[in-house]
């Protein structure tokens, strides 16, 4: 009897279409986030994260409709991130059917926004997303810094300190992405994950770098992640969600099978 660790597929969407490509053999429309979300939910995904990378405001209207469509057909938790900057943005997404919103850049520029959001909507729906890069040199104790603009701009903020601060402001969960590992398929930054997970009381979602199923296991057992987020290994059909869950369960991790 125990709480299961979670597997969360992530969909990157631009103007309501999934980008980065999803390759399922029997799917009609590989760009349709509704069809893909339904597919993942049926396969046993524990939650879905929808990351909106749409730049234009007209495009964001489309995103709201997409979230509505997903929420009326998929009955597992749905997190929406990307461009969440105001309380109104949060309200819009929750009303569309999102269960949680993920706040990234706006938290860095206006930390009080996280406090206001948690007070207004409750910590349970406020995820703070953090893009971390290792900044310590060889031989130095590990240190990671928060980066913005897709990992291009350093902020000087220490990741562990930032995580503690965001939790004290009311973040209910942390989505922790290693920008060093993102897209490399070389596994999560386990030391980063462990350092943050041990410093705060809220659940941590590990993200960035998954290349195989053992990486997911390591994220939980060595990185102390409460959930693991992955995109490409599932999108391109290299591994299925049931396969990932069975593998993790075989390694002694409690999963919802």
């Amino acid at each position: 009897m125990a709480l299961a660790k979670r597997i969360i597929p992530c969909l990157d969407c631009d103007k309501g279409r999934v980008v980065k490509g999803v390759k399922f053999l029997d799917i009609r429309d590989a760009g349709d986030p509704v069809e893909i979300s339904k597919r993942y939910s049926d396969a046993g995904a524990d939650e879905i994260t929808f990351l909106d990378i749409t730049a234009s405001s007209e495009g964001r209207e489309t995103t709201v409709h997409t979230v509505e469509a997903i929420a009326s057909q998929v009955f597992i938790p749905l997190t929406v991130g990307g461009g969440i900057r105001t309380l109104e943005d949060i309200r819009t997404m929750l009303n569309a059917g999102a269960d949680k919103v993920s706040i990234n850049t706006a938290a860095v520029f206006t930390p009080e926004f996280v406090r206001e959001a948690a007070e207004r909507f409750g910590s349970q729906c406020i995820v703070v997303a953090m893009d971390a890069k290792k900044v310590s040199g060889a031989g130095e104790p590990d240190r990671w810094e928060i980066f913005t603009h897709g990992g291009r701009k350093a902020t000087g903020i220490d990741v562990v300190e930032w995580a503690k601060r965001m939790v004290s402001y009311g973040a209910g969960e942390i989505l922790l992405t290693s920008m060093d590992r993102d897209g490399t398929k070389s596994g999560f930054d386990l030391a980063l994950n462990k350092a943050v997970s041990e410093s705060v009381s809220v659940p941590i979602i590990a993200s960035g770098g998954v290349g195989n199923l053992q990486d997911l296991v390591d994220g939980v057992l060595l990185g102390q992640a409460d959930a693991v987020l992955a995109a490409s290994i599932f999108h391109f059909g290299e591994f299925s969600i049931p396969q990932a869950k069975r593998y993790m369960a075989e390694k002694g991790i409690t999963m919802r099978l």
């Binding site: 009897m1 125990a2 709480l3 209910g172 809220v202 409460d226 959930a227 919802r256």
Partner: peptide, 13 residues
């Protein structure tokens, strides 16, 4: 150590 909030899928007896 268990995280709070209790977040995720758990067994109901």
């Amino acid at each position: 150590r268990l995280k709070v909030p209790h977040m995720g899928w758990n067994i109901v007896k």
